[in-house]
Design a protein around this nucleic acid. Structure first.
Lengths: 210, 210
DNA sequence: TAGATTGTTAATCGATTAACAATC
DNA sequence: TAGATTGTTAATCGATTAACAATC
C-alpha cells in the first residue's frame, strides 16, 4: 500500500505552502484544483500536480483533489498528525526567540523544555518553558523519549552539545548554528543556514545594483 | 573582464561555507586545494573546484588556490566587501533575536535601526539598536539610502509592511514571515522558510522511525 | 456533448559527477 | 621525472516542464 519511493526534498519543502492554502480552503470548499494552488503560490500548475501525485493522493478529473484528504496525507507524511515533542539547547537570543515563537505548534512541533549551562538562567522559565541544567539533559530526554533536539548554542560548543544530544537518544537535530556537525548516519541533521540565505540575497542585490 | 554568466544559486549558498574555512586557513597557509575544502565540508572535490571556477578564480595545478584571492573574490561577489546597512521591521521574539545576533557582522550585514508599531517599544533601544515608529520608516530609510529590509512582523501585516518597505526605496527583503510576498520584479525577496526546513527534518525522521 | 482537470509518458534543463589531459 | 592538482569536456542524474490522452 505504502509507496516505497520517498518524496523528493524539493517537494517536501513545498508541502507546508500547500498546507497553508488547504487550511484556508477547507472551510469553504471540498475540492481544490492544482491550478488554484499554483496560482496562489506563483508556481507551475504541473509542478503542484506532480507533487500531489508524489504524496500518493489521486484527484478526480474535472473536479480536483479532496481538500481534507490532501491535508491528511501531508500531515501524515510530515508527522504532523502526532505532535512531536522537542527540546531546545541554548537560551541566547535565538534560543529565546524560538521558545517564544508560537508558530511551531502549527507545524506539529512542541518544545517541552530548554537547557543551558548558565546558572543564572537555570531554573527560570522562558516564555513558559522551564530551563534546565544541561547536565541533566541526558536523563530527562531519555526518560521522555524525545527525538528532536533544537540546537541554538554558540558555534564553539555546537559539536560537543550535539554529541550530548545523540548520547541522550536524540535522532534528529535542527541545527541553528553555522557549524557543520559530524554525526553518524543514523542521526538526521537539518541545517537552518541563515548565512546561505543572506548570501543569495546579497549576491542578487549586487547583481542588480550595478 | 567580468563574467556575464552569473553564479548559480546552489553555488552561492555554499560560498559562506568556503569562506569560513578560508578564514581559518588564511593565517597559516597561502594556498589551499579543493580537496582540503571538500574534505572538511563533506562535499565532492570536483564540486568545490567547479564552484571556485564559477566565481572566476583560477588556481595553480599542483599548488592550489590562493587563499586571499579566494576570500577577496567571494567577498566581492557577495557584497561583503562594503558592509551593507539594513533595517529591521517587527520587534517581536524573532525580531529581537535578530537584533541581538552578533554573527551578522561577519556576513557584512549591519542592522542600523528597528521599526515597530507598538508605542511601548518605540523610543527604546534593543541590543543597542534604536526602535522607531513604523510611521517614520519611509523618511528615515530613504534618507539613509538603505537597500535591505528584514521583515519579522506577524504574517497578517507582512504584505502591507513589505509594500511600505518598497515605497521607502528598499530593494531587497529578507523575509522571516511565512507569507509569500507579492512584489514587482525589481524587488528581491529571499525567504527564510523555517516551515520548509522543519518539514524536511520531520519527514526524514518519519521515514527512519518506521 | 463540451469543458475542466487529472494521470502518464516524454522532453528539457541545470546541477552534479566522471574522466582525463595539461601544468606546476 | 613523478606526483599533486587544476581546467575542460563529456556523462549522468534528478527535477521541472511539456504534451496529450483519459475521465468526470
Amino acid at each position: 500500500m505504502k509507496e516505497l519511493t520517498s518524496v523528493s526534498v524539493p517537494t517536501v519543502r513545498r508541502l507546508p505552502l500547500y498546507m497553508a492554502i488547504l487550511k484556508e480552503i477547507e472551510p469553504t470548499s471540498e475540492h481544490v484544483s492544482s491550478t488554484l494552488i499554483s496560482d496562489r503560490l506563483g508556481l507551475e500548475q504541473i509542478q503542484v500536480r506532480k507533487d500531489l501525485a508524489g504524496i500518493g493522493v489521486t484527484g478526480q478529473p474535472a473536479v480536483g483533489f479532496n481538500v481534507r484528504e490532501l491535508i491528511g496525507a501531508i500531515e501524515q507524511l510530515l508527522g504532523w498528525d502526532n505532535i512531536r515533542d522537542a527540546i531546545l539547547v541554548g537560551t541566547g537570543n535565538l534560543g529565546q526567540a524560538l521558545l517564544g515563537y508560537d508558530g511551531f505548534a502549527r507545524y506539529g512541533l512542541n518544545i517541552v523544555a530548554a537547557f543551558d549551562s548558565n546558572p543564572e538562567i537555570i531554573g527560570m522559565k522562558i516564555h513558559g518553558k522551564p530551563v534546565f541544567d544541561i547536565e541533566v539533559l541526558s536523563s530527562l530526554t531519555e526518560r521522555m523519549h524525545i527525538q528532536i533536539g533544537i540546537l541554538a548554542v554558540p558555534g564553539k560548543v555546537a559539536q560537543q552539545v550535539a554529541d550530548t544530544l545523540i548520547e541522550a537518544g536524540i535522532h534528529a537535530i535542527w541545527n541553528f548554528t553555522p557549524v557543520k556537525l559530524n554525526v553518524s548516519d543514523n542521526t538526521i541533521v537539518e541545517q537552518v543556514d541563515l548565512a546561505a540565505s543572506l548570501a543569495v540575497l546579497s549576491s542578487k542585490l549586487k547583481a542588480v545594483s550595478k
